[in-house]
Design a protein around this nucleic acid. Sequence first.
DNA 1: GGAAGTAGGCACTTCAAAGTGCGTAACACA
DNA 2: TGTGTTACGCACTTTGAAGTGCCTACTTCC
Lengths: 149, 149
Amino acid sequence: MATTTAAQQRAQTRAQYDVFLAECPSRKLLDRISDKWVTLILAALGSDGSHRFGADCAGEPRPLRYSELSRLLAGVSQKMLTQTLRSLERDGLITRTATPTVPVTVTYELTDLGVSLHQMMRGLKGWAETHMDEVLDNRATYDTRASAG
Amino acid sequence: MATTTAAQQRAQTRAQYDVFLAECPSRKLLDRISDKWVTLILAALGSDGSHRFGADCAGEPRPLRYSELSRLLAGVSQKMLTQTLRSLERDGLITRTATPTVPVTVTYELTDLGVSLHQMMRGLKGWAETHMDEVLDNRATYDTRASAG
DNA sequence: GGAAGTAGGCACTTCAAAGTGCGTAACACA
DNA sequence: TGTGTTACGCACTTTGAAGTGCCTACTTCC
């Protein structure tokens, strides 16, 4: 009977904890931006449409079509692209504009909020470029010691 | 035979894409901080040991014992706590100090790099508090329209 | 008239991460 | 002597997200 006592206790405390986590706006922000395709779509829409995500993320924001995004993000499945675009639209970070042309044309564009988020991610990039090398150095050193020492 | 042609093409492009992603330091940073327990451990070690993560994350950084962290983070399983601490130690964000006392005592402490990361996450928090409400508003509006409209 | 392109929807499957329980070495205390 | 604590390691299981294939409606081009 009492085989899950410890588990249930943890479930209790976890439930409370999850509530707390859900309340934390920075946690929610992380949930949003920590998605692989979210960051890439933001980068794509935030920069011009050329496939230069890594370097500077510069260029002017430009609306992109679904098919353009699909080609730009290369490895993304249609499902994930659609799904991610929906969630970004839901959050008011991008707008979806469907024009009933020959075959229906849909374009996506960053909102002001989306641009704001994109700007912040460039800030993140700054920190990362400053310190992430150090982190990776530490990681390599740790691994070397673990296997050699 | 050629049933996986499209899939394999995607696999190709995805492989290239993953390489690119792996090279991006901001992507790596996201991989690090977007972990639930990472952020909480950082918050715990970055603030004093009281259970006030949400409000201000203030207080002075203080080394904490494994058991203290375990109690503080409540819902965390021992496995995840150990695992997360290891990875943070590996990255040079925290230090692990074992003192061979009565039952062995282990304390964890933020390194300078860890403090730096903790500071940045407070910056994140700033953005989140400024804009995340807006995002959540949009989300709620979207959901309402979807179900009611 | 059938193939192709556009922007997806739907359902099945897989796969890795997280959860969960159990074991451990050393010592202290009853 | 046996039970408890500390700080884990190991192995099994679950689960939820992502991947993948297959479908549509409409049109245009060959």
